[in-house]
């Protein structure tokens, strides 16, 4: 069990797996199995809160207005679930620790780090990714403005910034520059194209972001 699980794309978050890690994870397999059995028995006995996992469980998400049905482990983050299982690779995985913003999605109207959110926790919520911002082939005002003012260099931070700026403008259509700065505070551009990102957001605000 452990060896096959270890090969899942959402599992290893390190470049190299040390011997210590390997031993630890190898030990987990048997333990985890034991827990499932115990958990199931307990759940029946108490009829208390239901215990699911650690193996795959059905998780139904509403992403960009569409229902996405997955079978994933409870530990899978929203980001990995959508990138690895639902072919929504627009939002990027960079730090995987809630420190960069590349994975920014909108959940029930507010930005979140999808890398720091369990998929199983956001069932029943409205999830929007960068893929959901354009409507019938035309970019939203933020996306268009990012192209127009060339607000990217490598572009890796861009999906996260576009989602964050869209969420900001949907709530605050005419932001001050301080509000833009604070609204985009949770996103980092390693290439340093912050000035252009500000410009693009101001330009998008002038055009107005229409919620699709």
């Amino acid at each position: 069990m452990s060896s096959s699980k270890d090969n899942l794309p959402d599992k290893p978050d390190r470049v190299s797996v040390s011997r210590r890690d390997f031993l630890k994870t190898a030990g987990v397999g048997s333990l985890a199995t034991a827990v499932t059995a115990a958990g199931a028995a307990e759940a029946e006995a108490q009829a208390g809160p239901r215990v699911v996992g650690p193996g795959d469980v059905p998780v139904a998400l509403t992403v960009n207005g569409k229902r996405v049905d997955l079978r994933i482990e409870p530990r899978v983050t929203l980001l990995d679930a959508l990138r690895n299982r639902a072919d929504l690779t627009g939002n990027k995985r960079v730090c995987d620790r809630g420190s960069c913003g590349a994975c920014t999605m909108i959940v029930d109207g507010r930005t979140v780090y999808a890398c720091s959110t369990l998929a199983i926790d956001v069932q029943g919520k409205q999830i929007r990714t960068v893929e959901g911002l354009a409507s019938s082939g035309s970019l939203n005002a933020v996306q268009q403005a990012f192209c127009d003012v060339d607000a990217l260099m490598c572009g890796f931070c861009t999906p996260g910034f576009i989602v964050a700026a869209t969420a900001l403008l949907e709530r605050t259509p005419n932001p001050t520059s301080e509000q833009i700065r604070r609204g985009l505070d949770g996103n980092i551009c390693r290439c340093g194209t912050f000035v252009r990102i500000m410009e693009a957001t101001v330009a998008a605000a002038a055009k107005g972001v229409r919620r699709v």
Partner: peptide
């Protein structure tokens, strides 16, 4: 992350 059982 180690796999875990989950309770909501």
């Amino acid at each position: 992350m180690k796999a875990f059982a989950y309770v909501n």
